[in-house]
Computed example of a mutant assay.
Amino acid sequence: MPGVNADSRRATHSLPGRLAAPAGTLAAVAAAFAYVGAVDPNEPGHYPVCPLLHYTGLYCPGCGGLRSAHAFVHGDLTAALHANALAVLGYLAFFALWTVWVVHAVRGRPLRIDPRPGLVWSFGALLLVFTVVRNLPFGGWLHP
Rank of each mutant, 00 (worst) to 15 (best):
P137H: 09
G75Y: 09
R107D: 05
N84Q: 06
P115D: 07
V36F: 09
N42S: 12
H70R: 09
G17I: 00
V129H: 08
V132N: 00
D7G: 12
A20N: 05
A71W: 04
A69C: 11
D76A: 07
L136D: 00
R9P: 00
S122I: 01
A125R: 05
R107T: 04
R9V: 14
A20H: 05
V29F: 14
F72V: 02
V4S: 09
L81P: 01
L142K: 03
V73C: 11
A34E: 10
Y91T: 01
A31L: 15
N42K: 08
H70P: 07
G37N: 08
L92R: 03
V100M: 07
P51T: 12
L97M: 12
T131C: 02
H143L: 07
G124P: 09
W101D: 12
Y59V: 00
A125Q: 06
L111W: 02
V133I: 15
P115I: 08
A31S: 14
H82T: 12
M1N: 13
A79C: 02
F138S: 12
A80W: 02
R112C: 04
L52A: 11
A71F: 07
P110D: 11
G75N: 08
L92I: 12
A32F: 15
W121L: 15
P22D: 06
S14I: 01
V102C: 13
H70M: 06
R116I: 03
Y35W: 15
L26V: 11
D40W: 07
A32Y: 13
A11F: 08
A23W: 03
V120N: 04
A87M: 14
P16M: 09
G75F: 06
L127F: 14
A93C: 10
A96R: 13
P48T: 09
Y59T: 01
G17L: 08
L52S: 03
G45L: 03
A32S: 14
G108D: 05
V132T: 05
D114M: 10
F94S: 07
A23T: 14
H54I: 00
G57K: 00
D40Y: 06
F138V: 15
P48R: 04
F130R: 08
L111S: 13
Y59K: 01
L142W: 05
L126Y: 07
G37I: 04
R109Y: 04
A31H: 09
G3Y: 09
V39E: 11
A83W: 00
L77D: 02
V49I: 11
L89I: 07
S8P: 00
H54Y: 12
R9H: 10
V88C: 07
R10Q: 12
A79G: 07
P110L: 09
T78Q: 13
R109G: 03
P41S: 04
R107P: 06
Y35R: 13
P117F: 07
L89A: 13
L52M: 13
G37Q: 06
V102A: 11
R112G: 08
V36N: 02
A38P: 01
W101A: 11
G17R: 15
W98A: 02
A27Y: 10
V39H: 11
H143P: 00
P44V: 03
V129K: 06
L92W: 13
V73H: 05
T78E: 09
R9Y: 08
H82R: 15
W121M: 15
A69L: 15
L26H: 07
C60W: 01
A87F: 15
A28K: 12
A21Y: 11
V29P: 01
A30C: 11
T12K: 13
V102Y: 04
A28Y: 10
R67N: 10
V103Q: 06
N84R: 04
G45N: 06
